[in-house]
Structure formats: structure tokens, C-alpha cells
Amino acid sequence: MARMTMIEAIRDAHAVAMERDDRVVVFGEDVGYFGGVFRCTQGLQERFGSHRCFDTPISEAGIIGAAIGMAAYGLRPCVEIQFADYVYPAYDQIVSEAARLRHRSAGDFTAPIVVRMPSGGGIFGGQTHSQSPEALFTHVAGLTTVVVSNPVDAKGLLLAAIECDDPVMFFEPKRVYNGPFDGHHDRPVVPWSQHPLGEVPEGHYTIPLGTARVHRPGDELTVLAWGTLVHVAQAAAEETGIDAEVIDLRTLVPLDVDCITASVARTGRCLVVHEATRTSGFGAELSATVQERVFHHLEAPVTRVCGFDTPYPHAHEWSYFPGPRRVGRAMQELMRA
């Protein structure tokens, strides 16, 4: 075991994957010589050479399009989009190409690529460095969508994503790169070195895609969360004194339905929280899934706490962010229902 930040865990996952499989190549804007603006690929070019890890021109469609071609050749590209907010120029390549290559060619060509994207807010990034666009990818047949919340998961899930034979959208909420940010922006952040999920196994291990994790066991209500909001939900539970079970979904598609339904059937109450905008967010899918499958166990309507349906505001970030106060209040209302 080694103490790592999420950045170090991601860097380590790259190195382990590149060491084990010489088909793994890593590239993106500022990813090679500099090691990435968040330093997630630092040292890889020096260690593995510029044919394994390199910089690209500023062209997201180019990065993903080239990755698809490389994957069709037989490589395993793991690419970085500098901010998830910048992925849209590549959306056609992801949706129309990577996601459908296997299906439209009946397995003749495949696109085993990983698209890593720092996502989410809480860093005063304004509307172009704060978005959580994961729901846009969950709507696309053929994609696997992962959002990580801590170093242990980040390493194990990234290795699983690189080894996956299909394209994986891999979101890294940047606010938890250095510690389990719980939404209290006015308090010092706890570093991962003081958190059990900062204790990362050395060498190779994977966490299966499509498996959720019970982050905080509890009996009174179930909170479905991913990314930064896992830690916010935990803080809200502790601050309200409500014995909430916080489930970190980790993979949105394919979804670990059994983990969700088992928990909600036991607690009878379900709160869905996400940082992304509310309307047509993944919370809507979860809300429908829960009522379709465990309706008769519900003591209260499934409730959502989300980002507002506005662009992510720069100056009003903490009014926008679904922090522990808003999440805690929703928990209290659910308990009264």
C-alpha cells in the first residue's frame, strides 16, 4: 500500500497499464512533455518514450478520432480531454463512431479507448471548467460511463477501463483530486493522506466496471451519489444525524441495479444527488429505475438534489453547488415524509 492523492493514483494506473501492455498509448493536450495540466500523466513520456505518451494539437475531435483509428488498428489508447467542458467538439466521434463501431461492423472493428476527463466544479472554474456532462454519455448505446470519487477506485477503475474492450468515458471530479471535498468550501480540505481511501494498493488491480460501492452504510435512507457528491452526502448524513446509506455508483452505465434496489428496499427512502444540471440528468433515470423496481418499498417519493438548470456560475459557485446544507435539508424532508 502507498498513500496517494487521486492524481497520483491515476498516474500510477497509467504506468501499471503501460508496463503490462505495450499497446497502451497515452496522449492529449499538454499530456506528454508537461504531464498534463493536472499532472495526471507526469513522468510517463520520460519513462515510456514519446511513442507511448505524447502531446497533441488542440483538437478534441482530432484526439478522439485519432484514438478510434488507433484502436481499430489494435492499440489501447487512453486519452485525456483537458476539461470535460471541452469534449463537445469530439461528441460526434464518441457518439457516432466509438460507441457504434463494434455494432455497425458486427464486431469487425472495435474501439477500446478510454476518454479521461477532469469534470465538476468547486474550483472557481466558471461555466467552461466546471461542468459534469456524464449524463450526455449515459444516453448513448455502446458507451460505459465511469465517475470516480477517490484514489483507490480511481486506480482500479482506470485499469479496468483500459482493459475493457469497449469505449469508456472516465470522469475525474477535479475537486476531489487532492482530498475528499465535502462541500464545505470555507474549511480546509482534508488531504487524501489522512483518509483510508488514500491507501492505494501497489501494482496491478482492477475494480469491475458496473459495480457500485457502499460508501457509508446506514438504515434510514439511501443516497445515490457519484464523484464529489459522495463526500458531500456523507457530510450531510453526519451533520443531520440521519443514518443514511451513501452509495457511490462509480459506474453509471452499466448500472449496478442490485446494489441500489437492495438498499432502497431496506431503507424505504431514496435521495439522488448530482452536481450536474437537474433536467434530464442521470438522477431522472435513477429515480425512474427505483420506482419501477422497488415502488412498494418506498415510504416517500424519490427526491433529487442537483445543480440548478443554469450555466455553472463563476461568482455564485457556492449558491449553485449542491452542498451539505441543501443535501441535508432534503434528507430531513425525506425523513418527515
Partner: peptide
């Protein structure tokens, strides 16, 4: 694939950069 013919997309132009990626992979290897 056997006949060197990549799966055709109805979304125009997407294959152009993919071809460059495929060629890069050949050279990388």
C-alpha cells in the same frame, strides 16, 4: 477488415481523422 475496408459511417468526414490515427498507430508500432 480483411479486405482493408473500414466500416462506413453515414456521418461524413469522421473517418478522415480516424485514418490518420490508424496510420499513426502503424508507425508507432
Amino acid at each position: 477488415k480483411e479486405h482493408g475496408f473500414f466500416t462506413i459511417s453515414g456521418n461524413l468526414a469522421t473517418q478522415y481523422i480516424q485514418a490518420v490515427g490508424w496510420a499513426m498507430a502503424s508507425a508507432l508500432r
